[in-house]
């Protein structure tokens, strides 16, 4: 049965070869086909929308802070007294326990241990978490793709060097390497001559996370390119006298593009989770900058007294990451129904 092309092409099997065949015969292209599959996956779309909604909410943080809560993310209201259900209540009780959700205006989701508005910090923290996640993903995907393609295309000592480097980074437990880099870099920042990054900068955290995940994407891409470079169409391109750069980015890249696309949501979700973990450990975002990770971390210190300080940022984080993951899973199913692309985690 597998030898019958008629069945293979119309069945669930979907390789770039078959897709090319389909295209030639006036069928639909692989990405159109994938988009059509994705459009049918309502669950994935709903979770994608959930993530988009969270992004929009976080982008609107200044509006919320200015017009509704009337307070900034780092403004402390330790001694303030507000009215809850008509009764005046301390924002922080005499023993330092913060007020819970008022479901109204300022302190909609309560206050934290320093009398700051949790809802405002949640949105600003989300901005930081998402920013770091997106920057880290960009770094990982860009460097991993370039290194994976260049290494596998040229083979030889360069490839040896690149894949040894992948092995090296891969050997470290993610969080250990993260805190090792975080703690040394934060102390004095990073100075690479051309550009300097301050120790407290969010970019530094993004850089660390982006670096740590490189082999998780680079290895599979390299593996795919190793197979691709032996294929006839690459030979044909070489024989036509096309330059290596043209071949790598004109011929090879489009053929690994679907793998790269599938990795984007995976890495984004993992970057956001890693940011939270590093911040919890004190090797990520630094106080008073909020991020979901630092907020959970702050909340855990007050845990028996004010569980809302853990639940609010934690659930927001889980929802955002869940949105990315389910949507990303849908994208993978659409592009690669036989699910050949995976990440260890």
């Amino acid at each position: 049965m597998s030898t019958d092309p008629a069945l293979a092409a119309t069945g669930t099997e979907f390789s770039s070869d078959v897709a090319r065949e389909l295209q030639k015969e006036g069928g639909i292209g692989p990405y159109r086909l994938a988009a059509r599959r994705l459009a049918r996956n309502k669950v994935a779309l709903a979770f994608g929308a959930l993530f988009a909604l969270i992004v929009v909410m976080c982008l609107l943080a200044p509006v919320y802070a200015h017009d509704i809560a009337h307070t900034g993310p780092n403004d402390e209201h330790i001694t303030q007294v507000i009215k809850v259900a008509g009764k005046p209540t301390d924002v922080l009780s005499p023993v330092g326990i913060p007020i819970g959700p008022t479901w109204h205006g300022r302190f909609f989701l309560g206050a934290d241990g320093s009398g700051r508005d949790v809802a405002v910090r949640l949105l600003y923290g989300g901005r930081n978490s998402l920013e770091i996640g997106i920057e880290a993903t960009f770094i990982t995907i860009l460097l991993a793709s370039i290194l994976g393609i260049v290494g596998a295309y040229f083979r030889g000592p360069l490839d040896g060097l690149i894949s040894r480097a992948f092995d090296l980074i891969w050997a470290y437990p993610v969080y250990l390497l993260g805190i090792a880099l975080g703690v040394t870099l934060q102390l004095q920042g990073l100075d690479l001559g051309v550009f300097k990054i301050k120790g407290s900068s969010l970019v530094l955290t993004a850089l660390i996370i982006g670096f740590v995940f490189i082999p998780y994407v680079g290895k599979p891409i390299r593996g795919q390119v190793l197979v691709l470079r032996e294929r006839e169409f690459i030979d044909a391109a070489r024989q036509q006298g096309l330059g290596s750069l043209r071949i790598m980015f004109g011929e090879v890249l489009p053929n690994v593009a679907s793998t790269i696309i599938v990795f984007i949501p995976l890495i984004l979700a993992n970057s956001i989770l890693t940011e939270a973990g590093l911040s919890y450990l004190g090797a990520g975002v630094q106080d008073p900058n909020p991020s979901w990770g630092t907020m959970i971390s702050d909340g855990i210190r007050l845990i028996p007294a004010a569980i809302h300080l853990v639940l609010v940022p934690g659930l927001m984080l889980v929802l955002a990451v869940l949105g990315i993951n389910v949507f990303g899973d849908g994208v993978r199913d659409a592009l690669d129904p036989r699910a050949r692309i995976r990440i260890e985690h």
Binding site: D4, A6, L7, A9, T10, G11, T12
Partner: peptide
């Protein structure tokens, strides 16, 4: 016959 995404294949 096989039901597929592209229609019914009368194999």
């Amino acid at each position: 016959c096989f039901q597929t995404e592209g229609g019914v294949v009368k194999a």
